[in-house]
Simulated scan of single mutants.
Amino acid sequence: MRAVIMGETLLFLETFELEATLEAVDKHKATYIPVSPSFIVALVKSDLTNYNLSSLRILLSGGAPLGHNVSDNFREKFPNIEIINGYGLTETSTLGAGTKCQLGSVGGLRLSSLLEARIVDPVTGEILSPGQRGELWLRGPTVMKGYVGDEKATAEVLDSDGWLKTGDLCSFDFDGFLFILDRLKEMIKCNGYQVVPAELEHLLLSNSDIVDAAVVPYPDEDAGQIPMAFVVRKHGTTITETQVMDFIAKQVGPYKKIQRVTFIDSIPKSVTGKILRRELVNYALSTPPLLNYD
């Protein structure tokens, strides 16, 4: 709809792969692309000498949390391309929050002027204060009325006062900036602690030997679950499982440490760039393994 409203040309690609997208930008002189954070990481780490990206002005990042180190590295490499960090759901019809990513920013988003928000304890239902983590609830005129023909599903996400339960773990700071941490259902419960996969993924991607990464829960008899990392090595590097685990261990508390590592050729993702974690969990638990373990 943005392209229609602005009178722009809209280009559709059959697959959203890095090389095909860059070729399209070069050939058609595209100025704006909606992307996932993993695409931004790939741009930062890629050799782009074969592509002319001078026409590109804006990237709209969404679908997953964007680490501030990723946006800072991108701005250093592409000072003329602006990142707009957006957050929204199909159920909110449009962006629920967004902001421009300035160099050195901490990744906070401004709530849309159309919406109200609250952070709620997903267990007790208590409304939480700024600085506390909980489920983001949204209310406003752009929030859906419900799922057509599915009253049960509607009742699970919409309360009687019109609040939409997003299922996202978030927090507000004292300046009113919203921080998207991860999906609640993707949290790893290790020794009674909650581990945010996106936090560990951002740290993994800060390693120059790692092109892409995903973190999933792996069952453990003592801890309940432990963080397991799927890692895509940079071509030509030989980073080991121990080196990956040590790299993370130096930066996090004991319960957040990566305890298993599998090296793979690529991270399975949806067409919008979201990590298909269920596939990775199934791979990890399969017997015989569906992936090659190093």
Rank of each mutant, 00 (worst) to 15 (best):
K269G: 02
V231W: 13
V261H: 07
K257R: 15
M245R: 15
E82F: 06
S61F: 02
G273E: 04
Q259L: 09
K189A: 06
T272A: 05
L89C: 12
L66E: 06
A30R: 00
D182V: 01
K274S: 06
F247A: 12
F74C: 07
P79K: 10
V44C: 02
D220I: 10
F247N: 08
Y218L: 15
D265M: 08
T31W: 00
I127K: 10
L138R: 09
I239W: 14
M187D: 01
F172R: 08
S71A: 10
R277M: 05
F177Y: 15
A3I: 05
T142R: 10
A117S: 15
P268L: 09
I84M: 14
G62N: 06
A30C: 03
V271Y: 05
G7N: 03
M6E: 10
A20T: 00
L205K: 15
L280N: 07
F39W: 01
T90Y: 09
L158Q: 03
T238Y: 11
K100L: 12
S36N: 02
N207R: 13
D159C: 08
Y293L: 13
S105I: 01
I58F: 09
P268T: 10
P254H: 11
E82H: 09
P79D: 06
E8I: 00
A249R: 15
V35Y: 00
R278L: 08
F16Q: 03
I5T: 04
S171I: 04
G149M: 07
F16V: 00
T99K: 14
S113K: 11
V244F: 11
G176C: 10
V120H: 03
I58N: 07
N50T: 00
L136A: 08
S93F: 08
A213V: 14
T90S: 15
T166M: 11
D26A: 01
G236L: 14
P130E: 10
P37H: 01
L115N: 14
T90G: 11
G134R: 02
V281I: 15
T166I: 08
V35I: 01
G88F: 14
N69W: 07
L48W: 00
K269W: 03
V148M: 07
L114I: 03
